[in-house]
Simulated assay, not measured.
Amino acid sequence: MGLEAVIREIQEKGRKEAEEVRKETRADVEEILRDAQTKAAGIKMAAEEEADRTATHIINQEVSAANLVVKRQVLNAQKTLLDQVYSASLAAVGDLPAEFHKKALTELLKKVAGEIKEGIVHANERDTPVVKEIISGQKTLSGYTVGAPVEIPGGIIVESTDGELKIDYSYRTFLDEIWESGLKDASDILFT
Rank of each mutant, 00 (worst) to 15 (best):
E177N: 02
R126H: 06
I116P: 02
V21H: 05
K117C: 03
T140D: 15
D52H: 08
R53W: 05
L68W: 11
V29A: 11
G14R: 15
A88T: 12
G182M: 10
K132G: 03
D28V: 12
G119F: 04
I152S: 04
Y171Q: 00
V21A: 14
V70A: 14
V131Y: 01
V112I: 13
V21W: 08
G154N: 02
D83R: 12
Y86H: 08
V21I: 15
E17H: 07
L96W: 00
L82M: 15
I59R: 05
R34K: 13
A66G: 09
V69I: 11
L141C: 09
G163S: 05
W179M: 01
V130A: 04
V150E: 10
R8G: 06
E19S: 07
A98P: 02
G182C: 07
A40F: 12
N67L: 14
K71Y: 15
I59P: 00
A92H: 00
K13Q: 10
R8D: 14
A148R: 12
I152T: 05
D188A: 11
A51R: 14
D35H: 08
E49C: 04
K132T: 06
A91N: 10
A98T: 15
E151F: 06
A41F: 09
H101T: 00
L108F: 12
L141W: 11
V131D: 03
K132M: 06
K166R: 12
S187A: 09
E19N: 06
A36P: 00
I156W: 02
